[in-house]
Simulated scan of single mutants.
Amino acid sequence: MRLLVVNPNSTSSMTARIGAAARAVAAPATTIIAANPPTGPASIEGYYDEALAVPGMLAEIARHERDGGIDGTVIACFDDVGLDAARSLATGPVVGICEAAMQTAGLLAGRFAVVTTLARSVPALERLAQRYGMAGRCTIRAAGVPVLALENPASGAVDRVRDGIRRAVEQDGAECIVLGCAGMADLARTLAADTGVPVVDGVTAAVKLMEGLVALGLRTSKTGGYAPPLDKVR
């Protein structure tokens, strides 16, 4: 099984960390291909960055499907950037890490909280919670951490995320935490041990979900809104 884990931003060091987290949970027979577009926003923080990231991400998916034979694709951005377009383009199933993480958290707890990066990301994630049927079960908290600060161990970003988790448990009644950024993919087990509640990372949750879909022989339906793109002739 070959899975593409695509980071829609152009920061290759983050892609490497995402790929390592994905490989750590993948089955022995699963090959993880971690990739990012060569150009585009260095991080995705809000609607503007999302829009800029989509064309490069779709081109990366198309390239790997053409050249490498991909069985499924994981979109490794918590905004589930370009998810519907990617499902139309890809031949195999496509899973966004936000949807995977929220559905996983919903199996573990009655209420959960998403701890994300900056406040500007909160409205987009609230809309996704509504879309995925989780709005009544979760709260969204911003830790005040720029995405790229997660790349710097000296930034204090991890401490702010840990504090956000504790506040979500104490003030929001969260019984489980979802990490609201792919750049946090390597922190879940440490933060769970530190805080005493289950902590779900969307990258690893999406990989395990994708392995199940592929093993079951399931693909995205192409009979409706996810029909393949049409050729455009002027």
Rank of each mutant, 00 (worst) to 15 (best):
M1I: 09
V5D: 13
V6C: 07
N7T: 14
S10D: 06
T11M: 05
S13R: 07
A16N: 02
A16G: 09
G19V: 14
A21L: 07
A21H: 03
A22Q: 08
A22T: 14
A22N: 12
A24R: 11
A26C: 08
A29V: 04
T30C: 14
P37L: 09
G40Q: 01
I44N: 00
Y48F: 14
D49M: 04
A51N: 09
P55A: 08
M57E: 03
I61A: 04
H64F: 12
E65S: 03
E65H: 06
E65I: 06
R66V: 09
D67W: 03
G68N: 09
G68E: 15
I70G: 10
D71L: 00
T73Y: 08
V74Q: 02
F78G: 06
D79Q: 11
D80P: 03
G82C: 04
A85N: 00
R87L: 01
R87M: 02
R87Q: 03
L89N: 07
A90H: 05
G96L: 01
I97F: 11
E99S: 13
A100T: 15
M102I: 15
M102T: 13
Q103H: 15
T104R: 13
T104Y: 10
G106R: 06
G110V: 12
G110N: 13
R111F: 09
F112A: 06
T117E: 09
A119D: 15
R120C: 10
R120F: 03
R120T: 15
P123G: 03
L125F: 14
E126R: 14
R127Y: 01
R127V: 13
L128D: 04
A129R: 08
R131S: 06
M134G: 01
G136P: 01
I140P: 03
P146I: 05
V147T: 13
A149F: 03
A154R: 11
S155K: 02
R160T: 08
G164E: 04
I165C: 05
V169C: 11
G173H: 13
L179C: 03
A182V: 04
G183N: 12
A185G: 15
D186H: 15
D186F: 09
T190Q: 12
A193M: 02
V197E: 00
T204A: 10
A205D: 03
A206H: 06
V207M: 07
K208T: 15
V214M: 00
A215T: 13
A215W: 06
L216W: 13
S221C: 04
K222L: 01
G224E: 05
Y226H: 10
A227G: 13
D231P: 07
D231Q: 08
R234V: 14
